[in-house]
């Protein structure tokens, strides 16, 4: 049973399950560092997913699908940013509202776009091709890293790029300063509003990619509320890692792998509800443990 749990198949599935969580969590981490505890990634991703299929289906081109997904998701984040930054809304309530808006909006759009409610599947819609990495694809175990679509590889590159951006460039320094203490940034005469919107746009691009991965990454299809809580697990990954990007990435991967193992467990007759529960239970445990830990750190510092 154990070798089934840790088989190459589990790892491959784990990577593809982790990818949307990873992308959303990175977006959330950037927002979080810039002072916005964003819980609306679920909604942004859902809108991205719908427009991924829309782009791929109507333009017959999968790249256009990805671009549409990103544009749609960015528009949503800009709207979110407008209400958060200009209209000073409460971030939790806004996030809650935008998640609900995304479900309603995508559900509504299905009928006029595709003429049927609930879901859309058309076998002629293009989807992202799987790319093999030349040498790695022949090495046992490591070959799990090969054979994914472009968004998976892109997500790994984004982890590195974002880390460098956030911790090695002036831009990242300013973004982080925004979250630490936005008034000091104001005092230096910087346009803080611009940076806050920038964080939202980054989040939008990443959530759009995550949505595109879900809808046109494998099969080209969209079902109502197809993100099914992945965005919330991403929020948990952000909370768990304290928005420190390398840890955020690892946390997302852990969530992906455990879900993948859970699927294997389901295959051998484990009750499906308990299996579905795993990411939530892990998140809860992680929050419990990390709050104990955080408290200990605080104690030692004082």
């Amino acid at each position: 049973m154990l070798d089934m749990l840790f088989s190459e198949h589990t790892i491959t599935t784990g990577i593809s399950l982790a990818t949307p969580i990873l992308l959303c969590a990175l977006g959330g981490a950037v927002c979080s560092k810039a002072g916005n505890f964003n819980i609306a990634m679920e909604g942004f991703m859902l809108v991205g997913a719908l427009f991924g299929v829309v782009g791929a289906y109507f333009m017959g081109n999968v790249a256009m699908g990805v671009i549409c997904a990103i544009i749609a998701s960015v528009i949503m984040t800009l709207l979110y940013g407008l209400f958060l930054i200009k209209f000073k809304g409460n971030e939790i309530i806004l996030g809650f509202g935008f998640n609900m808006l995304a479900v309603a909006l995508t559900g509504w759009l299905l009928a006029p776009l595709f003429g049927n409610a609930g879901s859309f599947y058309n076998p002629n819609t293009p989807s992202l091709t799987k790319l093999a990495i030349p040498i790695i694809k022949d090495i046992p175990l490591l070959r799990c890293l090969s054979g994914h679509n472009i968004i998976v590889y892109l997500s790994w590159i984004i982890v590195i790029v974002l880390f460098i951006m956030m911790y090695k460039t002036p831009l990242g320094f300013r973004l982080r300063a925004l979250g630490e203490n936005s008034k000091t940034l104001d005092v230096t005469g910087m346009n803080t509003v611009r940076y806050r919107y920038l964080a939202e746009i980054i989040c939008g691009v990443l959530c759009g990619l995550a949505g595109a991965f879900l809808s046109i990454g494998n099969l080209s299809m969209f079902t109502e509320n197809m993100t099914s809580g992945r965005g919330y697990i991403a929020v948990a990954a952000v909370g768990f890692s304290n928005a420190y990007i390398p840890v955020t990435a690892v946390a997302s991967l852990i969530f992906g792998f455990t879900s993948s193992m859970a699927i294997q467990l389901q295959g051998i007759g484990f009750p499906s509800q308990l299996v579905d529960m795993t990411p939530y239970i892990i998140t809860i445990l992680v929050i419990i443990i990390s709050s104990f830990k955080k408290n200990k750190d605080k104690g030692s510092r004082q």
Binding site: F87, K88, I93, L94, F98, L105, W108
Partner: peptide
């Protein structure tokens, strides 16, 4: 969905002090 859109818009607008 139209009704859900309306409710979510109301919720989004409700805390927006700036508005």
């Amino acid at each position: 969905y139209t009704m859900n859109i309306m409710i979510s818009i109301i919720v989004i607008c409700i805390t927006a002090d700036g508005l």
